[in-house]
Design a protein around this nucleic acid. Structure first.
Lengths: 296, 296
DNA sequence: ACCTGTCCGTGAATATTTTTCATGATTTAG
DNA sequence: CTAAATCATGAAAAATATTCACGGACAGGT
């Protein structure tokens, strides 16, 4: 019925002052506009303007239409511009999913600079997935997965972006506090504090205790890193965390970091994304930026 | 570029869940929609949804479009409905112009009931006209002119809507306070207070003093009726006003109304409008309602 | 694994709509 | 009163939208 085209005509006629001038501005003939409006008037059942000599004066219906044009046309134009930006990968929204607790601390450092570089990209972080991080990736609930466990499958690609060392955190007063490293059996009497995730996903078990066929005496879970470290500082248990994270906290807390085994436990953070999105500029840029960020 | 039609498709596909179902709802074939969107995608430079098996999933551009559709389509529809009402004279805006000061008091009593009867008509009152009330009427600045002086010209019609008597207002303490009527020469020593308009437009001069070849001693002008009557009550002068207005104020003020001459001075309020608008329902209804209102 | 029904995409044919062209009627300015 | 400018109109041409008739892909049932 009322089409965008009609609104363009209304606006142009208002701005240019005459049908003829408007036609020129719209790269059409005066006749085309005349026909277009005439048809609209027939459909609306009322005229849009009154022909008074060579002047056109808007009727009430005409005023409504003009108001509509002034309201809607900018929205059309803005949306088109935005979609254009999206088409060129300059604008978008990046939904980041995370599968590891301390990853969040790391992510925060990446997101800041990223938002500066890509002011037109929104970053959204999600932490709960019904079908796991991979499920969320495949189900398009997220566009990027931050995880320490790359689960290679066709359709997704994982890129390592950050190497770090997982360390054991103990209180300054702990008997092991001055050791360079710990062996599994040294923790047989300890309380281990971890995030509340399945044991299979805890490297401290899969790569440290299990190979040595031992385990800590007790296992507690705590949601947040801050409280976890408070507990460790208070001598209520030990925990395994990234070294960069511990170093950060150690400035204000009586805690120490120890290597897990003589060689330490190297870990990596990976970014996973759908291969289809490989060409998406702002996603690629995120991966690149993430890789370039260093902790001193 | 992005047309209303595309928005309709986006919305319908979202609601119906598939192109085929949307096509049915829009009374088109699935092929038509497919072609339409394909062309749009080419113009935008990005696809609107991804074909995943038989599922369509919106891209970011698609989400933008859908959001646009949900925002703009209701506005299109609302505007069309409104214009339809305008076309049938059920809705409009009535711009009322006034040429006489006390007319405003009268108008207020008409507008209330009118707004009740015509909830879809907006009433706007204007009091200042660059080229007089008639000019405003011809220039389409107003649709209705309230005036005591019908100036008949081709193209406009005037309808008398209210008969009343213009009376002299004096203080209760005035020497004439208990007279039934006054003659012009009795006011030769008085101060006359009027609204600030040209003397030719004041009936008290043209119909009362001038025929008797006399005039009041002093002439002051005051903008507002309230202050004017305060002055009269205080014995600072006399004034000429409609009887219904004076009766209203006299309940709380020490003032009296006297006939101007033995016969009194009958007056009328007229409503003027363009003959072209004669068929406009809500305008006609205003005139009719104005005529029917009585003061008891 | 193999139908089967359903969905979407595509190219050619067709239908519809938009635009132009050519012209006339009306009005304003000089 | 003429000249220039404006908008309206009908017919012709151009452009666009829609349908038709397919084909390929996929999910669900057997």
């Amino acid at each position: 019925m009322v089409e965008r085209h009609h609104l363009e005509i209304m606006r142009s006629v208002e701005r240019q002052g005459s049908l003829t001038a408007a036609a020129e501005q719209l790269h059409l003939t005066q006749s085309a506009l005349s026909h277009a409006i005439r048809k609209l008037e027939q459909q609306l059942g009322t005229s849009v303007w009154l022909r008074e000599g060579r002047q056109l004066r808007l009727t009430q219906a005409g005023h409504q239409l003009l108001a509509l044009a002034n309201r809607l046309l900018p929205q059309f134009e803005h949306a088109e511009m935005q979609i254009h930006q999206i088409a060129q990968g300059q604008r978008g929204s990046l939904r980041v999913g995370m599968e590891c607790h301390p990853c969040y601390q790391w992510l925060l450092r990446v997101v800041g600079p990223y938002l500066q570089q890509w002011p037109d990209v929104d970053v959204d972080v999600k932490q709960e997935f019904q079908f796991g991080g991979m499920g969320a990736l495949f189900g398009h609930d997220i566009d990027l997965l931050v995880t320490p466990d790359p689960l290679h499958k066709p359709g997704v690609r994982f890129e390592p972006v950050f190497d770090y060392e997982q360390v054991l955190v103990v209180s300054e007063d702990h008997s092991l506090a001055d050791e360079k490293w710990v062996e599994p059996h040294q923790l047989e009497k300890e309380t281990l504090i971890t995030y509340p995730v399945a044991v299979e996903r805890l490297d401290i078990f899969t790569r440290f205790f299990l190979p040595a066929h031992t385990a800590p005496a007790r296992h507690k879970t705590i949601e947040t890193t801050d409280i976890m470290l408070q507990m460790v500082a208070a001598g209520r248990g030990v925990s395994a965390l990234p070294r960069w994270l511990v170093d950060d906290y150690a400035r204000n807390m009586p805690i120490r970091a120890l290597k897990l085994g003589q060689q330490g436990m190297p870990k990596q953070i990976f970014l996973g994304f759908r291969e289809r999105d490989e060409a998406v500029d702002y996603l690629n840029a995120f991966v690149k930026l993430a890789r370039s960020i260093r902790w001193n």
